[in-house]
Write a protein that binds this DNA or RNA. Sequence first.
RNA 1: GGCUGAGUGGCAGAGUGGUUAUGCAGCGGCCUGCAAAGCCGUGUACAGCGGUUCGAUUCCGCUCUCAGCCUCCA
Length: 463
Amino acid sequence: MSQLKIFNTLHREKQPFVPIEEGKVGLYVCGMTVYDYCHIGHARVMVVFDVVARYFKYLGYEVKYVRNITDIDDKIIARAAEAGEDFTDLTKRFIDEMHQDEASLNVLHPNEEPLATNSIDSIISMIETLIDKGNAYAGPNGDVYYSVESFDNYGQLSGRKLDDMNAGERVEVDENKRNPFDFVLWKSAKPGEPFWPSPWGNGRPGWHIECSAMATCCLGNHFDIHGGGMDLQFPHHENEIAQSEAATGETFVNTWMHNGFVRIDDEKMSKSLGNFFTVREVLKKYRGEEIRFFVLSSHYRSPLNYSDESLNEARSALERLYTALRGVTPIANEVKSDYVERFEAAMNDDFNSAKAISVLFECANEINKLKADNPELAAKTTSDLLVMAEPLGLLYQNPDEFLQSTTGSDEAISNDDIKAKISLRLEAKADRNWGLADQIRDELKEQGVIVEDKGQETTWRRE
RNA sequence: GGCUGAGUGGCAGAGUGGUUAUGCAGCGGCCUGCAAAGCCGUGUACAGCGGUUCGAUUCCGCUCUCAGCCUCCA
């Protein structure tokens, strides 16, 4: 079998994955800042790394998957102030919402989900270490900063040099910093802001330090894979490396993985541009599995353009796969089929889900051909299809349930009414009253129900 | 200005130094009372210009276009 290769942002090439400890993998992903609903970009991160975790399990690894929650930061404070509520009420609410979205997308829960506010002690102790080692300093305003010049390899991940960067390009240079690219480790509290006591006074952690603290706490000073969206490469992940490696003296992470953006009209979907769709908005029109298929239909590092057409295609594609599964009871296949081999080869090539999915379609085609002539082989091939779908988190529903479920919140004809009409139509057919039979079929079609005759049986599905 | 990445058939989207991606849509056929689903067949795609090569969409160079990052961001 081919070996798993992963594109490592740190080296800008695909590299064979070698775990630090045999048979185990530690995975840390930067999760949500919980001040609003998840949008499709967040859904992509969740789904992509869910597949990474699932596929490692499929390969037999023991996976420890950690995805943090940032539950204290400037935006959270601002939103809570706007709403006139305690920031913890706000974050608790959006954590619950996030978990609902996660479930809708069939994303398995990470093994650990640490909160920044539960990690204050380890954050403070890491900052103390950085000050002791000369990598951090308290500014005249009481904030504590990391000194980028104190870390020789600063810029290794994002491939940039301090000299090449334009300080003050977008944000005014802060006079409290020794170097404009120094970043905050500890931010002193203004009146009315939430705070924790620290050796530098009351305040809260900066954005980057929490991830260094949580990652090393949960997975150790040196672990296998760290992931997140492309935009976190710089400065967030660059700063995480600088903090963690300066504090521990060890290599922080072996493999860095970054997923591409979701776009709308060829522009990045983001909160700041305001061009985002939330997961729950899209769920009004499309099933969670359709969103999931859409995300996995292109490679995780490529841009992914969001549109109704794309979601409609995902729907058609899933209908085809579920139609193949319909009416077959899978029987475990004792030999590893050529399909599964090719599926693994695709996934081993930097989690190429798009290519892997093409194998699912070929497998579905084979099932359709075998159904009539060779039920036993059809059943085994069906099992193959489900074996491949599992690490992708797809095809987890009963085919009829999927095909007959409603796709949105619109008012739809009930299953009972559909069945009643189909009974009438079967009587008409028995009388060879084709006019009436076709009329009933047309009526159902208008209500989004497709009727299909198979010999004496009639099945139905929703469009 | 610095640094990334990308440009594939009607659309989406993989991939490869010479041979079918895959899905949707289209066209023809089989099946069907008719459909639907399914099956079979069907498309001289690889931004442009040079170079390397027996041969390049695939490697190299240049040009053009697009997107992203350069302390909000998944």
